[in-house]
Design a protein around this nucleic acid. Structure first.
Ligand code: FES
Ligand code: FES
Lengths: 144, 144
DNA sequence: AAATTAAAGGATAATTTTATCCCTTAACAT
DNA sequence: ATGTTAAGGGATAAAATTATCCTTTAATTT
């Protein structure tokens, strides 16, 4: 569904968001531990998230990653997915056509489109804040 | 969503199914052309489909791939997907946990599960026959 | 039976994705 | 100012996926 990069990106963002709730800035090591991901690889992904203004980063001592609390409320899953995997997840053809279109639909088009649109809707309406709150309440986990 | 292998597998099966409607047996070359896929790679996938009894294959002159017309009615997309990609597509966790479970749900679990279950339902109820009929009617295409 | 045909299967290559290493840059602490 | 700290970024490496090549096996045709 999502690439490994995107999975890490979502988990990292949710963790940073949770900590941002306590006005805490968190470092790479802490993030990698919290979401059980390879450190160096996670660093690359955080770079991308930072470039895409999804997270803020500060260098140096007591530096790390954080998020604007206000931005946090409007940030949706779709923005993370789009930043890392592009929009093929909820725009692409189920059978790999370059373009999904009604003009020349692949055999699964009509069956697939429905589900894909629901996925898009879910991603576009699910806010990172909601997810981080469930995490904070112990209703969800970032690693097993 | 699906791997490239799986995409080819689905397209190939649908094409073989369509031709099976005319009691035609089709060769590798013809299939690869019809679905616009690399020949040698497609051969590997057809081997897997054959091993999984999804298609029948006959060697030698006037050999090729075919499908049992009766089996064709009960064959669902899910069987192809399972044979090629396993069941992670509609059983796996959206954020890559080894196991998707309510006991220790990932942050997107409840949002994701709904969609994933609809995908499973779609795959399990969509028959290859239906898809091949649309193809035959010119309502769907296997390549652009 | 022999030749021909087409799938099966093994070995290998190219590409993409995932992951690591190490040096550079910027912020903070002293 | 200087040293320390942590992210940024370039270069590589490992692993998985996608793809090709070539030999073997089995069926048909002659
Ligand atoms: S053309 Fe394949 S999903 Fe729309
Ligand atoms: S635990 Fe992640 S989708 Fe169920």
């Amino acid at each position: 569904m999502f690439s490994k990069s995107c999975e890490y990106a979502i988990k990292a963002t949710i963790y940073i968001a949770e900590q941002a709730g306590f006005d805490k800035r968190v470092g790479l090591k802490e993030i990698a531990q919290a979401i059980d991901s390879p450190e160096a690889f996670t660093a690359k992904i955080l770079q991308q998230l930072s470039k895409n203004r999804i997270v803020d980063s500060v260098k140096g001592p007591s530096g790390g990653f954080s998020m604007d609390k206000k931005n946090l409320e409007v940030l949706k899953l779709s923005q993370i997915v789009k930043a890392i995997d592009g929009d093929s997840v909820y725009k692409g053809c189920g059978l790999g056509f370059n373009e999904c279109s009604e003009k020349k639909p692949c055999p699964v088009h009509y069956k697939f489109k429905t589900i894909r649109d629901e996925l898009r809707n879910m991603l576009e309406t699910t806010s990172v804040k909601d997810l981080s709150m469930n995490l904070n309440k112990g209703l969800a986990f970032l690693k097993k």
